[in-house]
């Protein structure tokens, strides 16, 4: 089944919409789906033109397509455990929070906290992602725990903060402190970044661009020839963060 949600014009288009109920399993039985516009509770129909195409007998067979002014819609795909969501433009904060399976494709940019505390599944963002991509909530000790978040563009500050498992791949540049407090999983940065992996205790971070303002508390551990995505790279190896008795691995391309 394909569900197409096209945003309706709104009098106050900048007021965020909270739509954690937009996940495939909720459309299987065409539940009464409610969303919030600011402090007002709305029916899905109030804010979207909704079109259903074809049948589905399980959430795996449900594909949701979001189009229109989607950049202010928050929490789409929260707790998603099957199916597919395609966002034709930008998406608001917290897309894919806690998702455990399924796939989210974002053709535009994603706002902050993309894939927050994600457990499994796959998120592909073809544009840029905001701050705290694949990170944890405030005060949480663990961020993303499983699955894959892939961003074709750049990512903001604090990317993969508290990363505990899974793989985060940023093809472009990252902002400040990617992989800060990282304790597991793999973070791959295709471009440049600043102050990577502060206070990390575990996991692996690979940087294929420049690592600016490299922290003084990583111990040089030789070099290694690695194969990534079918290509050979000579990487400088570091262990740290020594300030935290960390045993993480940080690799920076020579």
């Amino acid at each position: 089944m394909r569900v197409i949600l096209k945003t309706r014009p709104r009098a106050k288009p900048k007021i965020p919409i909270e739509a954690e109920e937009i996940i495939p399993q909720n459309f299987l039985r065409k539940n009464d789906i409610r969303v919030y516009e600011g402090n007002k509770e709305r029916a899905l129909d109030d804010l979207f033109f909704v079109t259903y195409e074809g049948p589905a007998v399980s959430p795996d067979q449900v594909e949701i397509v979001l189009t229109g002014d989607t950049g202010v819609i928050k929490r789409v795909g929260e707790y998603m455990n099957a199916g597919r969501i395609i966002i034709e433009g930008d998406i608001g904060m917290h897309c894919g929070n806690f998702m455990s399976a399924g796939e989210i494709l974002i053709r535009g940019n994603a706002d902050a906290w993309l894939g927050r505390e994600m457990r499994g599944g796959h998120i592909l963002c073809e544009g840029n992602s905001g701050h705290y991509c694949a990170a944890g909530y405030r005060g949480e000790k663990r961020g993303m725990r499983g699955g894959i978040v892939e961003v074709r563009g750049n990512s903001g500050d604090f990317t993969a903060e508290y990363l505990s498992g899974g793989e985060v791949i940023i093809h472009g540049d990252c902002g400040d402190l990617p992989g800060v407090e990282m304790r597991g999983g793999t973070l791959v940065i295709g471009g440049d970044c600043s102050r990577p992996c502060g206070n990390m205790t575990g996991g692996t971070c690979m940087i294929f661009g420049e690592a600016h303002k490299f922290l003084p508390t990583f111990r040089k551990n030789g070099t290694d020839d690695i194969v990534y995505a079918g290509k050979h790279y000579l990487m400088n190896l570091f262990r740290g963060d020594v300030a935290n008795r960390g045993k993480g691995t940080l690799m920076v391309r020579q």
Binding site: R195, P216, T217, V242
Partner: peptide
């Protein structure tokens, strides 16, 4: 941040780094 990290390492006895 870097200065604080360095001070933490020193207090931990990792002056050599």
């Amino acid at each position: 941040y870097a200065v604080l990290s360095a001070l933490r390492a020193i207090v931990r006895g990792k002056r050599g780094i």
